[in-house]
């Protein structure tokens, strides 16, 4: 995780544009917490947004100047850049239900 990457760009035929879901995950180094968060995010995306998302991982220990832009304080933080509105989810994303609520994937209960 050295640069903002678009590793998880996956395409599926047809319906939706791959970049209709643009997610950015801020972490600080490869700590157990960041790895856990990344794994959780990947799992959730695969389950719910397969083929429609890009995940960008930003390591603030490498690019600290990027923290200011998205007003990052807590780490890890997941920012939903697209679709609007921007929303943030902090923590290791271990509570899938809350992540889905935060990503607006689960209609409010």
């Amino acid at each position: 995780m050295k640069n903002p990457q678009n590793e998880f760009l996956e395409k599926e035929d047809g319906e939706l544009e791959t970049d209709s879901w643009k997610l950015r995950l801020y972490v600080a180094g490869q700590t157990p917490k960041s790895i856990k968060a990344f794994d959780n995010l990947k799992r959730i995306c695969e389950e719910h947004l397969a083929g429609q998302y890009t995940i960008e991982v930003v390591d603030l220990t490498v690019n600290p100047q990027l923290a200011k832009g998205d007003q990052i304080l807590a780490l890890p933080t997941l920012v939903r850049k697209l679709p609007p509105p921007i929303s943030k989810i902090i923590g290791d994303l271990s509570n899938t239900e809350r992540v889905l609520v935060g990503l607006d994937l689960l209609p409010g209960k």
Partner: peptide, 20 residues
Amino acid sequence: SEIEETGEYDLEGLFIRLGM
């Protein structure tokens, strides 16, 4: 309003920004 908390986190981001 735009923050959802899930699981463990810390304020390392604050430290990083301040440190920078």
